[in-house]
Design a protein around this nucleic acid. Sequence first.
DNA 1: TTCAATAAGTTGACATTGTCAAGTTAACAT
DNA 2: ATGTTAACTTGACAATGTCAACTTATTGAA
Lengths: 204, 204
Amino acid sequence: MKNTPEKLNYHHGDLRTTLLRVASEMIKEHGIEALSLRKLAAQVGVSRTAPYHHFKDKNALLCGIAENGFEKLNRINQHGFEETHLSPHERFSRFIHNYIRFASNNAELYELMFGRTIWKDKNSTQELRDCAYPCFQFQVTMTQQWQQQGLLNVDDNALRVSQVLWGTVHGIAKLFIDGIYTDNSKVEEICDYAVNMFLADNKQ
Amino acid sequence: MKNTPEKLNYHHGDLRTTLLRVASEMIKEHGIEALSLRKLAAQVGVSRTAPYHHFKDKNALLCGIAENGFEKLNRINQHGFEETHLSPHERFSRFIHNYIRFASNNAELYELMFGRTIWKDKNSTQELRDCAYPCFQFQVTMTQQWQQQGLLNVDDNALRVSQVLWGTVHGIAKLFIDGIYTDNSKVEEICDYAVNMFLADNKQ
DNA sequence: TTCAATAAGTTGACATTGTCAAGTTAACAT
DNA sequence: ATGTTAACTTGACAATGTCAACTTATTGAA
């Protein structure tokens, strides 16, 4: 008796998953700050406090959504990592573009994943950190590879270099997402500039 | 009858300024999300709705605080611009460091100035935009100067270059402020790396 | 099969918040 | 002096997160 798609009798059957899915949709549609537990519960068709049997509090629910986001981003990164038939320069470029494209296409989710709501004041759950840290670590791994491939100075501290690189893509993404840069049609061009500015002296 | 520092009889006398000052302190102390109009009013010693005679709503108050922040940042930028006795390379480096130092020392204010609360959904007031745009524009002006001084490629589109540069400092600042990078002792080192990575091929 | 333990869901209640409406008080220009 | 208006007040409301106490269904052991 677990095949009816949406609402069931008393016990929902798969409320946790449904909450995450619907909450993600609501966030994508109307933004993070517009998400209220009560509206979410209403939408799903349960009472306001039902979610508390699956998530400790609102923060835990947000962490759950972010987790899914990190898994998504990890898959994208992993996929790029495996495209060994492309030149290093091309893969570096794609990394930058892919990262910002992900942020652009999932603006509200990105905001949640890397925003203060979750990270400030140690709000993040352990499960979230388990998803997120590999994603952070991936930046460093990639940087080391680019150094070995001669794209970036091999004598530099890989962690520091990756922090600058990540800062750049994160900053550009944020300026768009938060509404400071408003002309979305220029994203790709800005990415190209970023690529060239970092690789300028290793190109020829 | 306008010399008593804090609370007066019925008319406060200088409530608008006081609200901005106290609100700024509260934000600096406890973070943006902890600021409530009611607590603020209580702190200042007026009723909950008194602020509404000086600010249209909470958003307008936040914009007012941010305005002060932009004036502060504009002064720092202007000061750096005038240090013509330093080498271009040194001035570029100081610009990066000063920017991130400002963000670090005024974390919550910075969050407000460049955060989605204000810029998303066109929440910004006209007065705020009048303060903020010169600050944005300044980035481009500086970039053009660096190009002319040979620090950056003069053939590149100055706007795009400045967007990448600003993205970088903004991103690094945000990663620290939002609690993703947690080791504050490395800020300066990361800044140095940023400087070197952008100027690498123009250095020798 | 029965039945107790427990997981899942419900209503009631409360404090906090932003904000509106309607009233009050003081300042100020005529 | 007097009336207009700016500054401030209390009362009220809806939205929200979350706790406590209760109810209903599921499930695993007897």
